[in-house]
């Protein structure tokens, strides 16, 4: 199983690097050079907008990590809430 995971990681890394290379020509320069006006922005919106302006790769990492964290928190959070409400799900029988 470990070998399969390592092989999968290798193939994915290769595929993604190829995709990056292939998608370079698809970038629209105006979209990459676009700056978001920061006037009137506060809090999280300002943070996201300034990161977007300064470093798009960092913005991409932040977006991916935030979506993963929020997804995990909601997944486990709802589990706890539903359990407390007596609506916990269990393994089901697979009927066709």
């Amino acid at each position: 199983m470990k070998k399969a995971v390592v092989a999968l990681a290798f193939v994915l890394a290769h595929f993604f690097s190829r995709l990056c290379a292939a998608s370079e020509g698809l970038d629209v320069p105006e979209a990459l050079e676009r700056k978001v006006p920061l006037d009137g922005l506060t809090g999280l919106s300002r943070f996201f907008a300034s990161t977007y302006n300064d470093n798009l790769t960092l913005y991409a990492v932040i977006c991916t990590v935030i979506m993963a964290i929020v997804g995990i928190v909601i997944a486990y959070g709802t589990d706890v809430i539903l359990k407390a409400m007596g609506m916990e799900v269990h393994k089901i029988e697979h009927k066709e």
Partner: peptide, 15 residues
């Protein structure tokens, strides 16, 4: 992967 690559191209409205 879709989230990362589109955000790196400035196309994700995270809010």
């Amino acid at each position: 992967w879709g989230c990362f690559t589109y955000a790196a191209k400035g196309r994700v409205e995270i809010v």
